[in-house]
Design a protein around this nucleic acid. Structure first.
Lengths: 137, 137
DNA sequence: CCGGATCCACTTAGATACTG
DNA sequence: CAGTATCTAAGTGGATCCGG
């Protein structure tokens, strides 16, 4: 099989390549701890800040706020402020955001089939690493 | 739409939920900087350490070594030592590892369609954030 | 109610030097 | 050739306090 792995020297090394690699940009959208969970909580429709805070029982205000702002910046979520008192702010997935949840579903599907194998492999590896050193014979 | 977002209090809060959530386990397999690139470099078949080091032009020995060990621990890559001198070590994707690259392909496909929209959204957001504050009227 | 600002602990990654 | 060990810099997340 030949999958045309690129010659990274064209880009000035792997480091430079990663900065312009679009799949990597997307990967980093989901790497932060709360991103996937917040998007999941928005799947059912618009939610206000305090509803999300309750749904994500245990998340700090700072992290929820920060995660939502990142999602908004990436165009995955809209933020709507109602000029009432007390203030009310609604968050909702955009079309782009809903399409991005497809990735999370793909990950969930793979996880359903293979996560146990990964966890088992870790257990085996860790047990082997904890064994006493083998005699040299 | 109702997507049955779970009541996280059942798990003792979101923090505890994330620790047992299988999709999250899978997500974290790819969060480290070099994982996806190393797996990509192994798609064409077995490679030895120095070949990978060259293919990933600019990666440090430490990060390549660390990434490969993590992949091996997760059961995605096998490590084969040939007892020759000088030593030779081959790395190869397992069946599990090859199936996991499907996730990376899904991300790549979405990126091909939507990464530009994300990048554009960021640009717009950043420009707006840099504007002078609006008068209160 | 919705956040911003600050401080701190922990993790991650790079540089460098050394070993079987 | 194929790593490991150590040190340091940078980023990420949590706790807490303050403001509109």
């Amino acid at each position: 099989m030949d999958t045309n792995f690129p010659d990274l020297r064209q880009f000035g090394g792997a480091e430079a390549f990663l900065r312009v690699c679009k799949p990597r940009v997307v990967l980093e959208m989901f790497t932060s701890k709360w991103t996937a969970l917040v998007m999941g909580a928005l799947l059912d429709g618009p939610r206000r800040f305090s509803e999300l805070r309750r749904a994500l029982d245990g998340i700090t205000q700072k992290m929820l706020s920060q995660t939502l702002r990142t999602l908004e910046r990436d165009g995955l979520v809209t933020r709507t402020v109602f000029p009432t008192v007390p203030p009310r702010v609604d968050y909702e997935l955009t079309a782009l955001g809903r399409s991005a949840t497809g990735i999370l579903e793909a990950i969930g599907a793979w996880a359903g089939e293979h996560a146990d194998a990964v966890i088992a492999a870790r257990t085996t590896y860790d047990a082997r690493a904890a064994e006493p050193p083998r005699p040299v014979t």
